[in-house]
Design a protein around this nucleic acid. Structure first.
Lengths: 150, 150
DNA sequence: CAACGAGGCACAATATATTGTATAATAGGG
DNA sequence: CCCTATTATACAATATATTGTGCCTCGTTG
């Protein structure tokens, strides 16, 4: 592996240990040229999560779409960015764990609502009212999906 | 490494190749028990970037703080989420490449302004005007830092 | 539709990583 | 401030990964 300091092409492993969950391997590497050391992690490939929108088109899942929607819904409300990130991370984790190939955008909309309700009723209601113009709540996530192309 | 399918503790490497940039190693693994295969990547550890706020306190850099600030500044403006992400990613990359230990929040504020100006003058001006109440532009990033604790 | 690039698969010879054991340093929690 | 968890470091014996070559498939592109 290339040295992250001098750019030298070769490095050797000084130590390698499994992490607690054994889901990753931590290695301590040393550059063969400059002798500097650094740490690497070997982790399972993050296969993109694909989302099927209501019109049938497919888009890669984008956590920031959820975050941006929640930021607007929670403006001036006691929901911190950290909590918003938690919600989005939690949803991503659940989607990855589900192992389902087909994830429908309607499902993601439901997951956002379900979690937001637990954090702040007002944001939840605002969330619903802001997007009242949509036929149903699930359309919201399609709106988020479209945000990319505006 | 643990099998991502059956949870078995052991797997072996079938194939390992350096990626184009030699910044990572891609391995093809096979579970010794269930025989299923998957791909892993060994990459350099993402060491947290630490930001020194104006009052001297230190916080980990959080890309989402930049994104959330830009989302508000670019509402109803022709700046897409993708472009906002590009700005934030570009800043993170520059910070990582700088190898500077000390990154002051004022610097990040400047970097955001500099890039936003290139994307959309109106958002840039709004950005400046919204935060006019602060003594100077650089205080904005401290505001973002505080968003976590609101 | 042909060309191309990327990824998956296989094999064999060689070089290198892994693992246990042990000590020290550091950061976070109580 | 101490206890604990995590990471860094070292060493030695053993097991395993790496690398070149070649072929196939799939998706993208001109």
């Amino acid at each position: 592996m290339k040295c992250m300091y001098c750019g030298c092409e070769d490095s050797k492993v000084m130590d390698s240990r499994a992490t607690i969950e054994t889901n990753a391997i931590r290695r301590r590497r040393e550059c063969l040229k400059c002798g500097k050391r650094w740490t690497t992690y070997e982790t399972v490939e993050n296969t993109p999560i694909l989302v099927i929108k209501k019109n049938g088109s497919i888009q890669p899942f984008n956590k920031n779409k959820i975050i941006s929607g929640l930021i607007k819904a929670c403006e001036k409300r006691p929901v911190s960015l950290t909590q918003i990130e938690d919600i989005a991370n939690d949803i991503e984790k659940e989607l990855r764990d589900s192992l389902t190939q087909e994830i429908r955008s309607i499902k993601i909309g439901d997951m956002v609502m379900e979690r937001l309700k637990q954090y702040d009723e007002v944001s939840y209601i605002r969330f619903a009212s802001v997007y009242r113009q949509f036929k149903d709540v699930s359309s919201f996530i399609d709106f988020l999906s479209d945000f990319n192309e505006n």
